[in-house]
Design a protein around this nucleic acid. Sequence first.
RNA 1: GCCCCCAUCGUCUAGCGGUUAGGACACGGCCCUUUCAAGGCUGAAACACGGGUUCGAUUCCCGUUGGGGGUACCA
Length: 488
Amino acid sequence: MPDHASFNHGFSIMSVVVRFAPSPTGYLHIGGARTALFNWLYARHTGGRYVLRIEDTDRQRSTEAAVQAILDGLSWLGLDADAPPVFQFARAERHREVAEQLLAKGLAYRCYETPAEAEARRAAQQAQKLPVRYDGKWRDRDPSEAPEGVSPVIRLRAPTEGETVIDDLVQGRVTVRNDQLDDMILLRSDGTPTYMHSVVVDDIDMGITHVIRGDDHLTNTFRQAQLYQAIGAALPRFAHIPLIHGPDGAKLSKRHGALAVTEYREMGLLPEAVRNYLLRLGWGHGDEEIISIDDAIAWFDIKDVGRGPSRLDMGKLENLNAHYLRQRPNAELLDLLDPFLAKAGLEADATGRARLLAGMDGLKQRARTLVDLAAAAAIYLRARPLPLDAKAAGLLTDEARDRLASLAAPLAALPSWDEASLEAVCREAAEAAGIGFGKLAQPLRAAVTGSNVSPGLFEVMRVLGREETLARLADVTAGRNPAALATN
RNA sequence: GCCCCCAUCGUCUAGCGGUUAGGACACGGCCCUUUCAAGGCUGAAACACGGGUUCGAUUCCCGUUGGGGGUACCA
């Protein structure tokens, strides 16, 4: 057992401890978010602990901005950790210490192969179609043979015979022959630890019981297992979850969907929708599709995670989003909408906000994202005279305008400005004119909203109020409306 | 090259030796209807291929093919 276990504050060894360990060399993308979600859910499901470890040992590529982006993304998704994040680089001294101990015990050794030599070796191996791996040149050489002026790396003296077996919770039993593995580097020549070394030391010190991570780490796990063995620590349980691919099946890239989770937020998606979508990628529970966070916690288990990779489907994500959008209270949506209104060039004053609140039921029913919702909100926010889009203008023939003009008086005289009364007046007018209701309703919609598509016509009129509605009608009959800029 | 993993409708998945192979998204039709949504009904759509094992394979085993990952003094 390691003699250093500063993170294992007296928790029972039976209690689950998981971690999400992103490296701050870029934003938190959708795949990382799902890995975090699975870890978080597993901790909540088992009553264990979920912690965050920032793997910043690559000093060249790690940035403070990336750390912040990861923290923001996780907090937006509601994946709160049970402890402050651990910064891996801060533990470099400890990593060095473990490497030195292994060195002292003869379980590791100094290797004086220079980077240039290593490159030449690999090229030669490749040319001869030999497996590319370290040849163990310094494994058994006497230290006295060390060349002058070369700082060595420290390599693990890994077993050369037998095999290493991982009982993966997702992938099952995976075996590799030890002669397929070479002696991995623990400490670089500048004394800094490699990722492979730091993860193992940290996972041991932090008392991690279950390592749930992307299956791009599966083959690394063999080497890591050898290191656990050398250190004399028990192996945690491993669960390697398949990666998420782009819609075309290729690796997720910036070109298609490997966006920062903060960009999903900017696309007008709700965190609960993203969470639900991610949960269903690689995991299922019978026919369940809409899954509350509580049910997710109750149902989630690693054994139900699938082995095959999955593809990102924005359509399904947006469908889920539409569902959760309708679920949100109107006042919350109004708050969420603010930045999206601004981006759409709209401004909501007190009157506008009151209208949005009153009209939200109709608006949210028709939106898939907050971006859609903001665009649809324009009918309640634009100043008169309303711009008419092409379809609306087409609806407003001279004949239609005449009918609308004659509608003004009965509307003005209406005792009660409610939806039922509005509908009654309009139906009467259509009947009196001997035309179908739609022949009247569509031009009326065009006049009142500037568009041929909108929430229920009488709901819109009710929300706008008598004065605004009649003013909009008057604009149209007087031909005051400008043409809307074609947007699509 | 070598090593490892994966494979059910277009996509996400259920299935865990015997099912009319189920659901969801997307797509088509119908209904509802003042438009668009939502909703309801409905249609088309899958076990990659070849061998085994078995009375019987989508399900178990082995190949092939196709994807993915690793093979760094990156993580």
